[in-house]
Write a protein that binds this DNA or RNA. Structure first.
Length: 589
RNA sequence: GCCCCUAUAGUACAACGGAUAGUACAAAGGAUUCCUAAUCCUUAGAUCUGGGUUCGAUUCCCGGUGGGGGUACCA
């Protein structure tokens, strides 16, 4: 494999950026070489090349079945003939295995290219392809005066990871926490507060108490119809800017937000904007007028709707205004979308919201599309499944604290074990830091490790199990690499003898490292942080296997430097992956 | 009723239409002269069902069954 060639321009398949090249470049070279011998163009050949599943097959593979048809020849024969043409070819060792043409790339070249790339780059696999483009991402979005649910936790964690993935490719990303801070329920909240405010205890969880008020007043409306009227009156006052009502609204909002902030702090999440629904309150009328002017809206049963069923869709009807003239969810989301499109001029607007709301989003996307807005194509719904088998009693903060309590105990126990084996010593403060990072890491990783659209089974024991497919395993691998580099205590340099990096474990590890840029891109394309999570597990396994059989500090100079470089690069990629997911990487644990 | 999603070892999850369906937990066995054993190495175990497309289907299409969600005045 001639790596120098990879920088050359290829007319048929253009490269997006330098970093992605590493793995793709080799495929490109192979495709170019094969295309010369075959009645297919380079792009077609490129699309057919697959990575080998088994290491003994090599690195890249070209199945000859499609050719068998057009060439009217046995695919195994085609493979054999091709292999003969590629003896001593710079792409690598080419062999025929049945109907497959396998290519084994030169090992020390892979090592040299990959490790030098990682060593030299600030952020391996990042790029500036998104430069000049803005992405708006709407995530987390809890409701004021209601518990921060586990669904909001998912939205927060998934949204943040997707945000990081975009930033990794140079996009400017605006994260918006679209708070549920408006609507008739605030009338109810004020009515409740009027009745029971003296029951409110500042020392207890405020959101929990608000929610109890809310449930209680709701029950009351069923007994006494006048309460609903009263609440509606309060909400009207709020809309009119009445001083007392506004003050209470601020109180509910600020107090709830303060509580939510504790969760965000634990997770390490920050938003560019916290523009809730209230923010769009005075912006809805012009949008409604626009939709009416376009002739999309109609009156039905006293309400204002857009009937999408009439427009070749099966999306149902979108309610813009209730019979009493009040606006709804869809109205506010439409308004928010217009506001964001006009204010930020984004390439895309993403909504990270649970699957049950899929139809709602597709409905109002469709309305915008029917309005003829060209930015409609940039609207993306990023749904996720919910946890099953989880009790949401106590809310998310209580849940997180329970996780932290338990990991804290485990961390202490493990630290004690490490100390007694004289392996590593941690101060009490360090143990606490580790416990917190591991607990939060476990929660985040659990959430991100499977594909977002699927429901996932919640299991406390599985989450807290520090073995196996978990965030702590990845964190631990990172810390282990740090430990080795600490003890190595030499300056890392990319000027090493790459031919010394040999063996199955080293080769597997290198191939994993090589995959990272393409994987980061794929995760971004699919809005799928789980691809990073599963990659980190694969990388960690490869790293631990390597470390197990390849000692660094007991090796002779040249070998020691080469292995240290490999560990250094592994540590770097692990750290970058963890950072994308929003999980803290620890030097010691 | 209609619409959408989903079905893989005992369990939880993977698998651009490609070779022997991966990984983890749990189970059985092994490694502690180990730079962090929160580790590593073995073993055993799975594609809901019936058709179709294809050289090739867990993957794509159609039917069935099971599970989840949505189906206008909540968000």
């Amino acid at each position: 494999m001639n790596f120098e060639q990879s920088g050359q321009a290829r007319p048929s398949c253009k490269r997006k950026n330098k970093e992605i090249e590493t793995v793709e470049a080799q495929k490109q070279d192979l495709a170019a070489a094969l295309a010369k011998e075959l009645p297919l163009d380079e792009e077609t050949v490129f699309g057919l090349i697959i990575p080998c599943k088994l290491p003994e097959h090599g690195d890249l593979s070209f199945p000859c079945f499609t050719l068998a048809k057009s060439m009217r020849k046995n695919p195994a024969l085609i493979a054999r003939e091709l292999a003969e043409k590629f003896t001593d070819h710079p792409v690598g060792t080419v062999t025929a295995a049945g109907p497959y043409l396998n290519v084994k790339l030169d090992e020390s070249n892979i090592a040299a290219k990959t490790l030098t790339d990682i060593f030299d780059s600030e952020q391996y696999g990042s790029s500036d392809k998104g430069e000049g483009q803005t992405i708006v991402i709407d995530y987390s979005s809890p409701n004021i005066a209601k518990p921060f649910g586990i669904g909001h936790l998912r939205s927060t964690v998934i949204g943040r990871a997707i945000k990081n993935l975009f930033e990794y490719q140079g996009y400017k990303v605006i994260g918006i926490n679209h708070l549920g801070d408006w609507g008739t329920q605030f009338g109810l909240m004020i009515a409740a507060w009027k009745r029971w405010s003296d029951e409110y205890d500042e020392n207890k969880d405020p959101v929990d108490q608000f929610y109890k008020f809310y449930v209680k007043i709701n029950a009351l409306t069923r007994e006494d119809k006048s309460v609903k009227e009263e609440a509606r009156g309060y909400f009207r006052k709020l809309e009119e800017g009445d001083e007392e009502a506004t003050k209470l609204w601020h109180f509910f909002r600020d107090t709830s937000l303060e509580e939510f902030e504790k969760i965000y702090k634990l997770l390490g999440v920050q938003f560019e904007y916290k523009q809730g629904e209230a923010f769009y309150n005075d912006k809805m009328e012009p949008i409604l007028k626009k939709i009416c002017d376009k002739g999309l809206a109609e009156e039905s049963e006293g309400a204002l709707i857009v009937d999408l069923d009439k427009r070749d869709t099966n999306l149902g009807k979108v309610l813009l205004k209730k019979g009493d003239g009040a606006t709804l969810y869809a109205t506010r989301d439409l308004t928010a979308a217009y506001y964001r499109a006009e204010t930020f001029k984004p390439a895309k607007i993403l909504y990270v919201v649970g699957m049950p709301q899929k139809q709602h989003f597709h409905q109002f996307f469709k309305v915008i599309e029917l309005m003829g807005e060209e930015w409609a194509s940039g609207l993306n719904y990023v749904g996720f499944g919910h946890y099953v088998g989880m009790s949401t009693r106590g809310g998310t903060l209580v849940f997180l604290r329970e996780v932290l309590d338990r990991t804290s105990a485990m961390a202490k126990e493990i630290a004690q074990g490490l100390k007694s084996r004289e392996q590593i010593e941690l101060t009490d403060e360090e143990v606490n830091t580790v416990a917190q990072a591991v607990g939060i890491g476990a929660v985040i990783f659990f959430d991100l490790k499977s594909r977002r659209a699927k429901d996932l089974e919640f299991d406390f024991d599985r989450l807290l199990n520090l073995k196996g497919d978990t965030g702590p395993y990845v964190q631990w691998t990172y810390a282990r690499c740090c430990g080795i580099l600490r003890k190595n205590d030499r300056e890392i340099t990319a000027d090493v003898d790459f031919s010394l990096i040999t063996g199955d474990e080293a080769r597997a590890l290198l191939k994993m490292l090589l995959r990272f840029p393409a994987q980061a891109q794929k995760a971004l394309d699919q809005y799928e942080p789980s691809l990073i999570a599963s990659y980190l597990l694969d990388l960690s396994r490869a790293a631990n296997s390597f470390i197990h059989v390849n000692n660094v500090i007991k090796s002779e100079d040249g070998l020691r430097n080469a292995r240290a470089l490999l560990i250094h690069c592994t540590r770097k990629v692990l750290g970058q992956g963890l950072k994308i997911l929003g999980i803290e990487a620890l030097e010691k644990m």
